[in-house]
């Protein structure tokens, strides 16, 4: 908001906090919906909403680039792929094989509480997680170039490691998608063969 000094100061004083709470009010029910919605595809769409509100939080923190990357990669790209994968699988078959939710309730609550404690304590220790210091001094263009520099200097190992992870995922996807009969299909095939061999038409099978 360059060029609107008064508006900027007014917004920082009055609107920013309201926007934060607004985003929280949107994000929390959406996140709850992601976990609890019985329709898995709808919860996928809700996940897009959660990611978008998190992008809104990034914008509040003056991290434009991160917000846009969040929308483009997580909000649209990855979640959409997940949703499509869910659409192409058979949700009814999954439901039948899934154990009842109540068995895992206790451990789930424990894990959630543990993770929350970790995050909360980490955020409380202010010296390790410096909170927003004088962001206005850092313009968005500088912000962008700083992200680029740190990705290719300080954090280059992490960056490369992430790409290896993605490569592994890609190869895994190719292996899964390859048109090979799955294991149970193979079993069925061999069972059929046995049946055929025991029958009189064993010669035909050999020919095939």
């Amino acid at each position: 908001m360059e060029g609107f000094p008064q508006l900027t100061t007014w917004a920082q004083a009055n609107v920013e906090q309201a926007v934060f709470y607004l985003l929280a009010v949107i994000a929390i029910p959406l996140a709850y919906g992601v976990v609890c919605d019985r329709n898995i595809i709808r919860s996928g769409f809700l996940l897009i909403g959660v990611f978008s509100t998190i992008a809104g939080l990034f914008i509040l923190l003056s991290a434009q680039f991160l917000a846009l990357a969040q929308i483009m990669i997580y909000g649209v790209g990855i979640t959409l792929v997940v949703v499509i994968a869910l659409m192409l699988t058979n949700p009814k078959a999954e439901k039948e094989s899934m154990p009842a939710l109540s068995i895992h309730k206790g451990p789930a609550i424990f894990v959630a509480c543990f993770l929350f404690m970790c995050v909360y304590l980490a955020l409380r220790s202010a010296e390790n997680w410096p909170v927003k210091t004088d962001v206005a001094a850092l313009s968005a263009a500088e912000n962008l170039s700083r992200i680029g520099q740190s990705l290719l200097t300080n954090y280059s190992f992490h960056f490369e490691f992430a790409s290896i992870l993605l490569l592994a995922a890609l190869i895994g996807a190719v292996m899964l998608a390859k048109a090979e009969p799955a294991v149970h299909d193979l079993n069925e095939l061999s069972a059929n063969e046995d049946k055929l061999k025991s029958s009189e038409r064993a010669d035909d099978v050999v020919k095939v």
């Binding site: 609107f4 897009i48 680039f65 483009m72 909000g75 790209g77 499509i84 968005a140 263009a141």
Partner: peptide, 26 residues
């Protein structure tokens, strides 16, 4: 119109332009 000129301008446009497909799938 100077206020809408973002330093990440074209990236912003591309990121936003990728959203409509969510609407289509939905």
């Amino acid at each position: 119109f100077r206020s809408v000129n973002l330093p990440t301008g074209i990236f912003y446009v591309l990121a936003i332009a990728s959203i409509p497909v969510v609407g289509i799938v939905m």
